[in-house]
Design a protein around this nucleic acid. Sequence first.
DNA 1: ATAAAAATTTAGACGAGTCTAAAGAAATAA
DNA 2: TTATTTCTTTAGACTCGTCTAAATTTTTAT
Lengths: 218, 218
Amino acid sequence: MITLAEENYLKAIWAISLNTNEKASTNAIADEISTSAASVSDMLRKLQEKELIKYEKYKGVELSEKGGNLATSIIRKHRLWETFLVNKLAFNWGEVHDVAEQLEHIKSDELVDKLDSFLGFPKFDPHGEPIPTKDGEIPTTNAIPLNELQTATKGRVMGVTLDEKSFLDYLTQLNIRIGTKIELLEKISFDQSLSINIENTNQHISNDVAKHLLIKIK
Amino acid sequence: MITLAEENYLKAIWAISLNTNEKASTNAIADEISTSAASVSDMLRKLQEKELIKYEKYKGVELSEKGGNLATSIIRKHRLWETFLVNKLAFNWGEVHDVAEQLEHIKSDELVDKLDSFLGFPKFDPHGEPIPTKDGEIPTTNAIPLNELQTATKGRVMGVTLDEKSFLDYLTQLNIRIGTKIELLEKISFDQSLSINIENTNQHISNDVAKHLLIKIK
DNA sequence: ATAAAAATTTAGACGAGTCTAAAGAAATAA
DNA sequence: TTATTTCTTTAGACTCGTCTAAATTTTTAT
């Protein structure tokens, strides 16, 4: 039996490895879930015993196959619930994260499958993030982060890679949603900030914002 | 902040007082949530400190106003989720209890209100049990338990007062659902068992089954 | 190459919620 | 009304997940 705390650690390790493609460090995990490094060390020992991670003291940690499957299934649940909240209950995309963080821990395979079916087997959640299938397959897109685009390229927003209210509220303010047409006008080399055109209005955004916007070209 | 365990204790006290109209005893609570009397004693002390119950050592316990409101809101959530599971996700009524027991602890007032709205503000759940409103009002019916009916009375099943898979599966087997027409043919004084007619078929059921069936006459 | 800094682990403690065993209070029966 | 049974509470211990402080290992900088 896996506990709620354990699930959150697996998710944190998953999220870190996703971004860095490296082993997750104790401190990175502590940051991710806002706890002390000591607590993380403790928990890693326990997860190691349960064979959910591959861990060597002082050397960082990665998920085992078992742990990876579990993490994927939690992400699947999180994204399905977010889709439910936005598509069926009319939440807006900045409001759903905290509730989905609770719902993702509900234990019932049948519930997840029926929810999936009820939602019409969505491939992407309201933020454009891929929803892993029942078998753990993760849908792909050829979208790339806005800050990696070449100047004068046009595209369309396919997703965001940060699920934080303040970020999503800012996007809404900028008139940026999934599907919005966007053109990269200029990259400022001084601070990597970007001038963009959204629906015939010019805007200026930081690199920090741009790197969390996934764009599909043309 | 109220914990999951505390919520379950409040619910247990609520359920016991509902049936007996008396203060709940330590042992009754221990039975209800399958724990030891010692654990219950411990928890009652804590709930007392939080002013969620009115408790005198050795004298039993009842909910305070605050505790009562909380318990009602948990019941509201439980029954809304059961309604969602049956009406939207096509679970059958015997399968929903355990999942709803998890979902009822999700913390988000907005979620509950939006779910209520999405379901069309239902007054009764799939078992015919009343769903408390946002203000804590509990819809009433004039239905009475089948075992209290007079012989030769006809009526319709308006609800069941036990949410256990084995019971609900048995009802399904007997062709009894919400809305089913029923006639009480005979009460056996030896064991209080009952002969009934359901959809032109005669059946024989125990008093234990009958007392959990709510019937509206005529 | 070694000293300093940073990262990580260990040690010891705590609160929540549970348990068993034992003590104490209340109810019941002779 | 006293003895016995039943119910309830207290005492002490355990696990889980957390913490701070201290010890240890690794990395970085001089």
